[in-house]
Amino acid sequence: MDDVVRRTALPGRSQSPHDKLARGLGYFSIALGVAEMVAPKAICKAAGVEGIENVVRGYGAREIATGAAILTSHNPEPWIWTRVAGDLADIATIATGLRQDNNSKGRSALTLAALAAVTIVDLACANGLNSEKASRKTAARDYSGRSGFPQGLQAARGAARDFKVPDDMRTPELLRPWT
């Protein structure tokens, strides 16, 4: 068979480890997003930044939207890339805080390390999904020769017109002139 394309990473499975990882990241996004929306203060404190509660709340909304998109779309790859972009925004935000004179540098550094780790996972997932994609080399196959009528389309038109539609599926006589 020459038109065989590589469809998933694991033979006999519809799901590759990257598909699974993507779903995990989807749930993670939603959980983190909810935390950022309901408890931005606590999150800021844990990350060692101050006074950006509203920004964090906005990031929360972004996380939830991305997570939902990952879980509901057939192709999570673009949304994992969205996560990567989000990770970079997070890192920039914390790094800005770090440069400011603040006394929770330790916590910020830890947060940065955690963010870097998550970014690496996101990148690995996005790259993995990308490399598993089947080539859509056949994007628009042309099936215009497949009528399904061995005697041709013209012969088929109305060939079953004598079929008696069962009574329970007929339009009442009274309505018939209008349908």
């Binding site: 628009a140 196959r141 042309d142 099936y143 497949r146 009528s147 009528f149 038109r157």
Partner: peptide
């Protein structure tokens, strides 16, 4: 497009 082409073939 491939599915539309098949529907067209069927009339």
């Amino acid at each position: 497009p491939e599915r539309l082409s098949m529907a067209k073939a069927g009339g």
